[in-house]
């Protein structure tokens, strides 16, 4: 009787050990497997960013893109040339936009206007927009901070 009791306790212990070990393996492997699966968001590169394909941008338009944690603006001139600037207005950090009618970069907050070289030409902005370098590699457009 005692013997039987003892052996059932032993079995029980073995079960716990077995399941515990299994649980432990899972609790170690689960994070590792989740870690190995790459996240959907492409890796954030702050120095340069892929904005899109040449065909996505019509001449005479401007597009806001995310550059690190600040917005940038990519402008395609009517000549087809690309230019990129920081889209943060130098006056009060609003996001600037391209105005087709003005052929200029315009800030909606206080009507600040920059020309297509990023120079502040009217309104309150005290400084030109920071210029970025545009690299067209094949069909794809990259914007990088070194200008």
């Amino acid at each position: 009787m005692v013997q039987e009791h003892r052996s059932s306790r032993r079995n029980f212990l073995n079960y716990i050990l077995g399941f515990g070990f299994l649980g432990w393996i899972i609790s170690v492997l689960y994070p590792i497997i989740r870690y190995i699966i790459p996240p959907k968001i492409p890796e954030a590169k702050v120095k340069s960013v892929k904005v899109g394909k040449v065909g996505d941008f019509n001449p005479g338009t401007g597009t806001i893109f995310k550059f690190g944690n600040k917005p940038g603006i990519l402008i395609r001139l009517e000549t087809g040339e690309f230019r990129a600037f920081s889209a943060v207005c130098t006056h009060l950090d609003c996001t600037v936009q391209y105005r087709e009618d003005m052929k200029a970069i315009w800030c909606a907050c206080h009507n600040g206007v920059y020309d297509l070289n990023g120079r502040n030409i009217s309104g309150p902005p005290p400084r030109p927009l920071e210029a970025f370098r545009v690299i067209v590699r094949g069909d794809e457009i990259y914007v990088s901070k070194e200008g």
Binding site: P31, I32, R34, Y35, I37, P38, P39, I41, E43, A44
Partner: peptide
């Protein structure tokens, strides 16, 4: 940036 990416974007990073 990549370490920041690991700790913020990668699951269990």
């Amino acid at each position: 940036e990549s370490v920041q990416f690991i700790v913020s974007k990668v699951k269990f990073g």
